[in-house]
């Protein structure tokens, strides 16, 4: 993250810094990003009939919720949160979700693909691709249709993954929820095109321009509550082909289980428990996580099994309607 350059190389910058100090209206990048996100959220609230915020319980969702609170203060957040639940999230995530949304007075809607769950859909038997297809993508599309939502906020960031780097902030979805990456609406300045016909929707990404570092830094500054799993603790995990998968109670065949070990670890991003790996870490606070990020040089989704299904797996999922 930090560039190692001898200070002597920057004669001009001193000058610039002095000018900044004189400029009382200097606004740092985090406040710029915050202002942009708030603008996006208000634009959605003003232009759509039934917006909803996709809530994944993760740190980006926590940040999105805080931005929504800021955008509409002193009024409450004027749209519901939708959690598309695969039923395979960690217990700590469910506990956090219920406590967090209750305390913040948010209207939480939970949607599951009950039909698929009744047939015991799981990643071991179906493979991660099909499992995600049923429990995430299908459930998401059904959940959006059930609520009659015409716009859905998502916490995705462009720095996460290379197909996301091309995503618009207002990203058009056809009647099947699909994304056509080659035919996106041009998006200039902050003039967002919110026009849809019945059945078509817009996915809105207010955190598009945030990086992982920005998100953590904002969590730190704003003291935003996040799931404790992001912090290091001693956990029982199984080493699955290099991914440290935590042991939780699942109805999966024993043949897939390996010998669990206990070690200090934390989660860099949160997904379903069978598919989310932990990383070894001793970071127990947000500043420590940030310090670790500066040193640890792997990208954030590296421990998500689903992204590695194929070279373009995220792009394909998004075309099918995934976030």
């Amino acid at each position: 993250m930090l560039i190692e350059t001898p200070d002597g190389l920057f004669p001009r910058i001193e000058q610039v810094t002095m000018r900044h100090e004189k400029n009382h209206y200097h606004i740092g990048h985090l406040r710029s990003l915050e202002a942009e996100s708030i603008h996006i959220m208000r634009e959605v609230a003003a232009e759509f009939k039934r917006p909803v915020m996709l809530y994944s319980v993760g740190k980006d969702s926590s940040v999105m919720v805080r931005l929504a609170q800021k955008a509409f203060f002193p009024a409450p957040v004027p749209f519901p949160l939708l959690h598309v639940d695969t039923s395979y999230k960690f217990e700590e995530m469910y506990a956090f979700r219920d406590a967090f949304t209750k305390e913040a007075g948010l209207n939480l809607v939970v949607h599951r693909n009950e039909a698929a769950l009744a047939k015991k859909a799981n990643p071991y038997d179906l493979g991660t691709g099909a499992c995600c297809g049923f429990l995430k993508t299908r459930a998401l599309l059904d959940g959006l249709a059930a609520g009659g939502y015409d716009a859905a906020f998502g916490g995705a960031r462009r720095d996460e993954e290379k197909s996301r780097a091309k995503e618009r902030i207002f990203s058009f979805r056809n009647r099947d929820g699909g994304w056509d990456p080659k035919n996106q609406r041009p998006e200039l300045w902050n003039l967002y095109n919110a026009r849809v016909k019945r059945g078509e929707t817009i996915r809105v990404f207010p955190l598009s321009n945030w990086t992982e570092m920005d998100v953590w830094h904002y969590i730190h500054l704003e003291k935003i509550p996040i799931v404790p799993m992001y912090f290091a603790a001693e956990r029982e995990v199984v080493d699955m082909d290099g991914h440290l998968i935590p042991v939780e109670r699942f109805p999966f065949p024993d043949r897939l289980r390996r010998k669990p070990v206990r070690l200090m670890c934390r989660f860099r991003s949160l997904g379903c428990s069978p598919c989310t790996g932990a990383i070894r870490s001793t970071a127990t606070s947000v500043p420590e996580i940030i310090a670790e990020m500066i040193e640890v040089r792997t990208s954030e989704r590296a421990n998500r099994v689903i992204d590695h299904d194929g070279e373009a797996s995220m792009e394909q999922k998004k075309k099918d309607g995934y976030f």
Partner: peptide
């Protein structure tokens, strides 16, 4: 290959859309 994100672009070796990159230095994002 790093900057051309979409599969079609990687296959055809062209850049067809705007891609956004994020990086930082000492003073700026």
């Amino acid at each position: 290959l790093l900057t051309d994100g979409l599969k079609a672009e990687r296959e055809q070796g062209i850049t067809i859309d705007v891609a956004y990159r994020y990086f930082s230095s000492h003073r700026r994002k």
